[in-house]
Deep mutational scan, measured.
Amino acid sequence: LELTLRVGDKTWHFKDVDEEFVRHLEELLKRGAHEREIEEIIREWLR
């Protein structure tokens, strides 16, 4: 999967994204996660 995600003024483009990561992001967005929380999840995933 490829994913382009825009949060606030930042845009990330990922290739070979894990479906579990996408589901986790979807859940965060559904519950109205704040920009900082989403950025933290992305940084963790990139490690």
Rank of each mutant, 00 (worst) to 15 (best):
L1G: 15
L1C: 07
L1R: 12
L1A: 09
E2F: 06
E2Q: 08
E2C: 05
E2P: 02
E2V: 06
E2N: 09
L3M: 06
L3F: 12
L3T: 05
L3I: 14
L3Q: 02
L3V: 11
T4R: 05
T4W: 08
T4Y: 09
T4C: 06
T4N: 06
T4E: 12
T4I: 13
T4F: 08
L5W: 02
L5H: 01
L5P: 00
L5I: 15
R6T: 15
R6I: 15
R6Y: 04
R6G: 07
V7W: 06
V7P: 00
V7E: 01
V7C: 06
V7G: 01
V7R: 01
V7M: 05
G8I: 01
G8M: 03
D9E: 09
D9T: 07
D9I: 03
D9S: 07
K10T: 14
K10R: 09
K10L: 07
K10H: 13
K10D: 04
K10Q: 09
K10S: 08
T11K: 03
T11W: 08
T11C: 07
T11M: 10
T11I: 14
W12D: 00
W12T: 00
W12S: 00
W12G: 00
W12F: 10
H13D: 02
H13S: 06
H13L: 06
H13N: 06
H13A: 04
F14A: 00
F14L: 14
F14M: 04
F14P: 00
F14S: 00
F14Y: 01
F14K: 00
F14H: 00
F14V: 04
K15S: 06
K15D: 07
K15Q: 09
K15F: 08
K15E: 06
K15A: 06
K15R: 13
K15M: 09
D16G: 12
D16E: 08
D16M: 15
D16S: 14
D16A: 15
D16V: 13
D16N: 14
D16R: 13
V17D: 12
V17Q: 11
V17N: 08
V17G: 15
V17H: 11
V17A: 13
V17P: 07
D18V: 02
D18K: 06
D18M: 02
D18W: 02
D18H: 11
E19I: 15
E19S: 14
E19A: 15
E19G: 11
E19V: 15
E19Q: 14
E19L: 15
E20G: 15
E20M: 13
E20F: 10
E20A: 14
E20S: 13
E20P: 15
E20L: 13
E20C: 04
F21L: 04
F21Q: 05
F21A: 03
F21P: 01
V22D: 01
V22Q: 02
V22H: 04
V22M: 06
R23K: 14
R23N: 12
R23T: 09
R23M: 10
R23G: 08
H24A: 09
H24N: 11
H24Q: 12
H24G: 12
H24S: 14
H24L: 13
L25E: 00
L25I: 10
L25V: 08
L25Y: 02
E26C: 05
E26G: 09
E26K: 12
E27R: 09
E27P: 01
E27Y: 12
E27M: 10
E27V: 09
E27W: 08
E27I: 08
E27T: 11
L28C: 03
L28S: 07
L28Q: 09
L28A: 11
L28N: 04
L28K: 11
L28Y: 05
L28F: 05
L28W: 05
L28R: 09
L29I: 15
L29E: 03
L29Y: 07
L29F: 08
L29M: 15
K30D: 10
K30P: 01
K30T: 13
K30R: 13
K30Q: 11
K30G: 09
K30F: 12
K30H: 13
K30Y: 11
R31L: 13
R31Q: 14
R31S: 15
R31A: 14
G32P: 05
G32E: 06
G32Q: 05
G32F: 05
G32W: 03
G32I: 04
G32N: 06
G32H: 07
A33R: 07
A33E: 07
A33D: 06
A33I: 10
A33Y: 14
H34I: 08
H34R: 08
H34V: 08
H34S: 14
H34L: 10
H34E: 13
H34K: 13
E35H: 12
E35F: 11
E35T: 10
E35L: 10
E35V: 12
E35Q: 11
E35W: 11
R36L: 13
R36S: 15
R36C: 06
R36M: 14
R36T: 13
R36V: 12
R36Y: 14
R36P: 06
R36Q: 15
E37L: 05
E37S: 04
E37K: 07
E37G: 03
E37H: 08
E37Y: 12
E37D: 11
E37P: 02
E37R: 05
I38Y: 04
I38M: 06
I38F: 09
I38A: 02
I38D: 01
I38L: 07
E39H: 06
E39Y: 06
E39W: 05
E39A: 06
E39N: 12
E40S: 12
E40N: 10
E40A: 12
E40Y: 08
E40K: 11
E40H: 10
I41E: 13
I41C: 05
I41L: 11
I41A: 13
I41M: 14
I42L: 06
I42F: 08
I42Y: 10
I42E: 01
I42Q: 01
I42S: 01
R43H: 14
R43Y: 15
R43T: 13
R43P: 01
R43W: 13
R43L: 13
R43G: 09
R43Q: 14
E44S: 05
E44H: 05
E44N: 08
E44M: 06
E44Q: 09
E44F: 04
E44P: 00
W45K: 03
W45H: 14
W45G: 02
W45M: 07
W45D: 01
W45P: 01
W45V: 04
L46P: 03
L46F: 10
L46D: 08
L46E: 14
L46R: 04
L46K: 05
L46M: 11
L46I: 13
L46A: 06
L46S: 04
L46V: 09
L46C: 10
R47V: 14
R47I: 14
R47T: 14
R47S: 13
R47N: 13
R47H: 15
R47L: 13
